[in-house]
Amino acid sequence: MSQLLHTKGLRKSFGAVTAADDVSITITSNERVSLIGSNGAGKTTFANMVTGYLKPDAGSIEFLGKDISKLSPREVTKQGIARSFQIPQVFLQLSVLDNMLVAIACSQSELSFTRSSHRAEAIDSATRLLERFALHAYCDRKVVEMPGGMRKLLDIAMALTATPKLLLLDEPTSGVSVDEKFPMMDTVSAALESEGVSVLFVEHDMEIVQRYSKRVIAFYSGRVIADASPADVLADEQVQLYVTGRRK
């Protein structure tokens, strides 16, 4: 079990708001971890700092032993961390297939001026991934015509093209209807099984948290208030006070 991500003493403030307060977390390979906390607790800020979108005010972030706290999102992706977004960041006017092809193209070390974006190997890889996410039937549809849940799946599929070692999913089931949440997470889990990635996902739905993660980290006001198995964390006094509400 190798250490993937190691953050130490992360701090981040936006004016009077403390979004991260001494956050120290270690993630090893093959983990399934969920990050919980009420809105504004600092989960997305954590994801933004790890992926280089925000620079921490203090503290360090190491990935596979290398300091990544000063890297840009692009450089962080190249190190092996990929991410999906709360609001799917996809290419609306392009087709589902084209979205995947863009992701595949960007994951190469050099973007070619001449090699066709629609060459056979690229389409093959794209199609295989789309099949695992049950999106293959919508290959030629423009993403702008697709419902939110499918855009989220596409967002995650795109994040996988770079064969990351750590995957950050920001609220994968938010905006997805109740009946569709489990099937969606089943699809995602199955698709991720074969990849051997560690997954960190931000979630508000405690059923999803219990079912799909082996470890839960709870945030409140920028601090980590609990970090243990789902059962232990959800039974924790503080977590019940600040995040989930009292258990009956």
């Binding site: 992926t51 990929a82 960041q89 290419f91 092809l101 994951s107 070619s112 001026f113 001449t114 770079a162």
Partner: peptide, 26 residues
């Protein structure tokens, strides 16, 4: 040839969502 290449497709993506292109590694 350029328009039809990988770079050409990513150019169209930049127009749609620059941030995502960065996050994809380009």
């Amino acid at each position: 040839i350029y328009f039809d290449s990988s770079r050409g497709l990513v150019a169209l993506a930049i127009r749609e969502n620059e941030l995502r292109v960065e996050y994809l590694g380009s």
